[in-house]
Computed example of a mutant assay.
Amino acid sequence: MKKLILLAFSFLLIFGSLQAQSPDEIWEAANQYALANLNEDYELLLDFTYPQVIEQAGGREAYKKVLLQMNELQKNRGMSLSDFIVKEPLDKVKAGDEWHVVVPYQSVTKVKGGRLTSENTLIAVAAEGKSKWYFVETASLTERNLAKVLPNWNNTLILPYKKAPIFKED
Rank of each mutant, 00 (worst) to 15 (best):
K2G: 15
K3N: 13
L4T: 13
L6W: 12
A8V: 11
A8C: 01
F9R: 00
F9W: 03
F11T: 05
L12K: 02
L13G: 02
G16P: 09
S17C: 15
S17M: 12
L18S: 03
P23S: 12
D24R: 14
E28T: 15
Q32F: 13
Y33N: 03
Y33H: 08
N37K: 04
E43D: 15
T49N: 01
Y50K: 06
R60T: 08
E61R: 10
K65H: 10
K65L: 12
V66F: 02
L67C: 04
M70F: 07
N71G: 13
N76Y: 06
R77I: 01
M79A: 06
M79G: 00
S80P: 04
S80M: 09
S80D: 10
K92D: 09
G96H: 06
G96P: 09
D97P: 01
E98F: 15
V103R: 04
Y105Q: 02
V111N: 02
G113D: 06
G114I: 09
G114D: 06
G114E: 03
R115I: 12
L116M: 12
T117Q: 08
L122S: 02
L122M: 02
L122K: 05
A124L: 07
A126C: 06
E128K: 14
S131G: 13
K132C: 02
F135W: 01
T138S: 01
L141S: 07
L141W: 00
E143C: 05
N145K: 11
N145F: 11
V149L: 09
L150V: 09
N152H: 10
N155S: 12
L157R: 05
I158G: 05
L159V: 13
Y161V: 13
Y161W: 03
Y161M: 12
I166P: 03
F167E: 01
K168D: 10
D170Q: 09
